[in-house]
Design a protein around this nucleic acid. Structure first.
Lengths: 238, 238
DNA sequence: CAGTATCCGATGCGATACTG
DNA sequence: CAGTATCGCATCGGATACTG
């Protein structure tokens, strides 16, 4: 049941790429080299056994390199040149999803942790404020498993971004109180911020100036918007 | 085991698209609307049962429309607007395969019928000669199952292209005698025509002028080349 | 932490046979 | 021709337990 037995280039690509979970792994590696744990964090529903197998398959197909980590045990997983060349496919898939999977955010898709880290990842480092800027999120409507993931802090420093699950003890510029589903949809651009605020599912507190800054940095639009899907690499998590 | 439970657009796209056989179906539909039999012809190793299921899934996902055929029974399968929007993904996959799956033509991939029809499909109608031009192919090295598929005719008319498995009884301008594997690789651009001719795995007979015409129409290059993968629609087969 | 080995149940998928 | 219904097996993939 291996392969398609077609010499067509689409079929050849599908053989290495169009298997369950594989696009998500490649997507993660497009953000930069990662360790096994990083990948498992980003794709928590995939079993470690299967993740390891897929990584071996991808290495065998020549799109991922597995190098021993410099310090300590473990490996670093990195796209090879052939793997980097898959990036346009992932981007095209992201564009399609943005446009055509609008509103298909299911309850089971919600994940506060991935949402906050996703925001951290999408923030353009060149748009960071010139002094510390602290945002606190208070989510409601979390899936049961995530009840201890209600409160998050996003600490934007001029040269770095931190994500905290514990109070960093800094003065907060903006508090965002939101239903997780509603905020996820706003973040994705699937619904407009104006409606969400009007509906009471998303609320900000903080100075008008601070709220405006946050909206600019997160690029939250008043109306539904097709956001550009980007894969900008970012430094591996600590 | 359905879905990925991630709101990421790449994951959403992968849910409808990155399943076994699905990219090949979408690829075929990118060439234009097709009937069940056409699809099965293009993807012969896929069971009809599974093909039907996939088409239903794609319809449910909103990327394929299934309309009753005007005359007779059966249906016409066609990409919807959302399905057409998948085209850039298929194109990116084709480009990747052209560049990075070079030389991965396995014996099991060889298929004289798909090769000839693939040539017919890729010929640019604007490049057709202004009088009938007939090519006869004699392949060797075919898989056992295809022993009755050795001889093919390609009839290029000013306004149409015909593929024949039986002698159409026209005077032949060029005869191509070739090992199927070698010619497939030349056709894909994976090996150069010059080497293949030197190695004796591909040979032409016909006037120099006619051979040159054929090489121009089929875009056969002397040296290995990364051919552009194209999905130009073409009229459904008779 | 960074994976690997093993087990076993679900399902994916092809083969075959059937229908209008 | 254009599919659909059913069956049975292979494999896929998650859970669990294990290793350095």
């Amino acid at each position: 049941m291996k392969g398609y037995n077609q010499f067509c280039p689409v079929a050849k690509t599908a053989e290495v790429f169009a298997e369950r979970w594989t696009p998500l792994i490649v997507r993660e590696l497009c953000y930069g080299p990662k360790r096994f744990g990083d990948l498992h964090f980003a794709i928590p529903l995939m079993s470690r056994t299967l993740l390891a197998r897929r990584l071996r398959d991808l290495a065998e197909a020549g799109v991922v390199s597995i190098e021993p980590k410099e310090s300590g045990r473990g490996h670093v997983y990195r796209l090879t040149e052939a793997g980097e060349a898959l990036r346009p496919i992932i981007e095209a898939m992201g564009d399609w999803g943005q446009r055509w999977a609008q509103g298909k955010v299911e309850p089971g898709d919600l994940d506060a942790e991935l949402l906050v880290w996703g925001m951290r990842r999408q923030i353009d480092p060149r748009e960071l404020p010139d002094r510390d800027f602290v945002v606190r999120f208070e989510f409601s409507g979390l899936p049961k498993r995530q009840r201890n993931r209600r409160y998050w802090w996003l600490v934007l420093r001029p040269d770095d971004i931190e994500v905290c699950l514990k109070d960093p003890g800094l003065s907060v510029d903006v508090v965002v109180v939101a239903d997780l589903a509603a905020f996820t949809r706003v973040w994705m651009g699937y619904s407009g911020l104006a409606e969400a605020v009007a509906a009471g599912t998303v609320a900000f507190s903080g100075s008008g100036r601070a709220v405006a800054t946050l909206r600019r940095i997160l690029k939250l639009a008043d109306r539904p918007t097709i956001r550009k899907f980007t894969l900008r690499p970012w430094p591996a998590t600590a």
